[in-house]
Design a protein around this nucleic acid. Structure first.
Lengths: 338, 338
DNA sequence: AACTGGCACTCAGCCGAGAGGAGTGCCAGG
DNA sequence: CCTGGCACTCCTCTCGGCTGAGTGCCAGTT
């Protein structure tokens, strides 16, 4: 077990390193932090911390740099989320209140997060799985062609084109529309399937196949999360990354271009509270020198989607966590209002 | 006027420089191109080309590098668009044919373009202004709350929430929906306003204000092009940019984050044919060392939107132009089919 | 008049050596 | 258990010299 002072030394190292971006030595540490001991003592502590794997020397006779394990300890035990200043909170409110629709909310959130944290921001659109149905609309585009439009309580709209096996009469369509809506409006997506199970039975045998197809498409839309859209912003902040540029930034940009990677990244966030993945804790190789700070957000108690930022492992964790949490809360409020 | 051989020298310089990324000297030139003259002669030609501002020396006693003006001449007079190979064409077809909806088409196009050109790809969603209306749907979400859904022939769906001044009956809504659709379906957006001008007159005085509001919102949606969405991809290719990294790449990334900039960038493309903007010809400072190759695409003869790529001024113009043009054509076909 | 070979000159890039300095580990003493 | 001192390591910066590609110019050739 590490003594209290050693933890204090680790905290100081992380803080200094994050600030200066340079390996921190024992002398500098004692000068900048009131540790109450001499550099020599700190050196001994550092040696222990290095043995335990919390810090590391880039090369002999250089200062120390925190390892992923060091950052992990720092985040878990040595610091707490830093609340935003009043001015910042107000700025968030002002910025997000101007949004006109869901797309706009997401777009603004991305910009805001990127500016606030000076890092790359990722925002997931409110997911379909946990939302409820606000309305289902069926439109006859052609005799045997129906457009299915699904509107969710989060303001999201999904549309699908359905090719029916036989022409569908306008009255049949109206009938189906009415029955469908009366059953599923206000329901959660996951609850819908059983509710429409025997719907086709109420129709003429001739129409049943078409009804089946429409229902199948609806269920598909509900379940298949193919449209899990994600918005990204602030990639220019990557240029602040470090000096050893091209090598670091390239794989990160590549990783961030993959929707799948982004989804998985956010998927790892816990449902409540701020999640931090540090360096090698990330499954993707290109992101081994980055940390991901993410959090769920939603209109009610439950998270409907997630958002977060990606930055260098050497980042201001308390500040970033605070910003991410605050933004998530505000977005949740906005969504609840609309 | 430059002699034929001098133009040939310029062309050789551009080609070599694009290939090697290094200033090209007179000796290397004569070795790699059958110019039929000695290095000394080439040197004289180069001196002239430099006087005229087509090429430049990074520093005394270094090879020459084309200037923006040099690239311009090269693009305008010294080369032609290079058609893609059969394999490439087939690859484009295969890749794009799998698309399931408009979002997917755009997303795939971006990826494709980025891979093909190894540069940053920009694709604008088919614009609303030139499309025609496929269907207008009105849904009563609450007594005085209507959702307006607009479906275009390009497969795009726009929705708006309308707060009516008074409750709107279901029959009124159905009536309005029917009249509206009978008038505007198949029309171009620009033709719609006069067609719905006197629509309110057919309704009871009590309902007119609500009808007015709905119509106003519709017109707004049609005109206001706030939703001019653009998709970006292949930013990782920026890392191939050059050696003097951070300075070059930063402003480019920043510029590309601005939707407005992207729109303006594509907006400058001519309606037909491939447009090339080189270096300082771009209005945005951050893009002064990049070239933009863009082209319109559409389902018919007319362009409904544009796409293009952004890359270093030192790029393979013939190849890039060919790829951009080919992709635009295929996307146009796909859109026409659906 | 146009081209060519030769020649002197320039200058970025690349060592290699040396000085400087931050930081360490260890040890003996408080 | 902490501290001051000391020898040692090794990165970083600088400076000078060398190299080689490339140039401009000139005199000679076709």
């Amino acid at each position: 077990m590490l003594s209290e002072r050693r933890l204090e030394v680790l905290r100081a190292i992380v803080q200094d390193y994050v600030g200066t971006e340079e390996p921190v030595g024992s002398k500098a540490l004692t000068e900048r932090h009131a540790l109450g001991v001499s550099p020599a003592t700190v050196r001994n502590d550092m040696a222990v911390l290095e043995d335990e794997g919390y810090i590391q020397q880039p090369h002999t006779s250089a200062g120390r740099v925190p390892t992923d394990k060091g950052y992990r300890l720092f985040v878990d035990r040595l610091t707490s989320v830093k609340p935003l200043s009043g001015a910042e909170r107000r700025a968030i409110g002002n910025f997000l209140d101007g949004a006109v629709d869901l797309d706009d909310v997401v777009a603004r959130t991305v910009r805001l997060l990127a500016q606030l944290t000076r890092q790359v921001a990722i925002v997931q659109y409110p997911s379909l799985t946990r939302s409820t149905v606000r309305h289902v609309e069926l439109l006859a585009l052609a005799p045997a062609r129906v457009m299915l439009v699904l509107i969710t309580d989060t303001g999201r709209v999904e549309q699908r084109l359905v090719d029916a096996p036989a022409p569908v009469g306008e009255t049949v369509l109206a009938d189906l529309r009415a029955r469908l809506n009366s059953r599923v409006v206000g329901r959660r997506f996951s609850d819908v399937p059983p509710l429409v199970q025997e719907l086709p039975e109420g129709f003429e045998p001739d129409d049943r196949p078409s009804v089946q197809v429409v229902l199948a498409t609806l269920l598909e839309t509900l379940v298949e999360e193919t449209e899990e859209r994600i918005m990204l912003g602030g990639t220019a902040n990557l240029t602040r990354f470090g000096h050893d540029f091209p090598l670091t930034i390239r794989p990160v940009l590549e990783a961030l271009e993959e929707q799948v990677v982004l989804l998985k990244l956010l998927g790892e966030a816990k449902d409540s509270g701020v999640t931090v993945r540090i360096g090698h804790e990330n499954f993707h190789e290109g992101l081994n020198s980055t940390s991901v700070v993410s959090v769920g957000y939603g209109s009610g108690d439950e998270a409907v989607a997630k958002l977060g930022v990606v930055g260098p492992t050497r980042m201001d964790y308390p500040g970033t966590m605070g910003a991410v949490r605050a933004v998530a809360r505000y977005v949740g409020q906005i969504l609840a209002e609309s």
